[in-house]
Amino acid sequence: MRPLALNGALGVLALSLFVLSLLVGPADLRLGESVSGLLAGGSEAAGIIMREIRLPRALLGLAIGFSLGLAGAVLQGFLRNPLAEPGIIGVSATAALGAVAIFYSGLAGTSLYTLPAGALAGAFAAVLILLAIASRQGSTLTLILAGVALSSLSGALTSLVLNLSPNPFAAYEIIFWLLGSLKDRSMEHVALAVPLMALGWLLIALSGRAIDALSLGEDAAQSLGIHMGRTRFLIVAGVALSVGAATAVAGTIGFIGLVVPHLLRPLTDRLPSSLLLPAGLGGAALLLAADSAARLILPAGELNVGVLTALIGAPFFLWLVMRARREML
């Protein structure tokens, strides 16, 4: 498919699901109420619901889905590994651990700003560890196994920190950090996370040429004028910023960065850079769809959206692994 047509179609899809996300919720608002609530000011219930509850939720779904799809695509391109994904290789789990460790200790006060700070630190650490492992031992298997180990360790430490919290309610939040959710987020969270994510997208976009050149291996890429140190920085910082900020406000949402790039790659010329924008838009569409479904399946209790993405993604991952021997790329 031509890039413009593909990106246009995915953009329209993401936008439609964004609108759908605005229309789904436990409060029964009619379409007209929703639109006027969104546009008009005032303190009518419909207005407050649209502007303070549904809009931030939809915006976060869009931005976080974009981040996760984009991060998956860039990691796959950089590592030349179609199974690389922030969730699978443990970046999301470690980001969650960072956020949990700083926020729940209360050392930095109760401000929400400590969440992205901790998540970014965790994500940075995870990406650095994984790149170190990948550069020593390039095999797909090693990277995935290292990621599994990192994920389990981070998940366990997250539970430990929450259980050790002097606040008896903290332990109930384990599920949020392990199976993320966009429930009842507010504009504060948007302001907190979206600028960081956008900076991450920019850095990732700047690495587009480099990941294309890396299709031919590091030596050839360097001879094409790619500065490996700079590329590594762009990708580490870009992934840490976008995935870290996403995890800080929504917990660990897995598999989007795996499923989306894989489905869309055949529709591109398969150059890693051509996949970046489609993967971002596709990720946004998938997360918005999953988040709307989470509200429709269990309207009152509400499913954690990470449950849904795992339900879609984990069997997909298994299928990819089984197929991997025959045709990896």
């Binding site: 926020f103 729940y104 209360g106 109760t110 919290s165 002097p166 606040n167 309610f169 903290a170 949020f176």
Partner: peptide, 8 residues
């Protein structure tokens, strides 16, 4: 809110 912070 009691003591240590929670998201909830």
């Amino acid at each position: 809110p009691a003591g240590a912070p929670t998201l909830g």
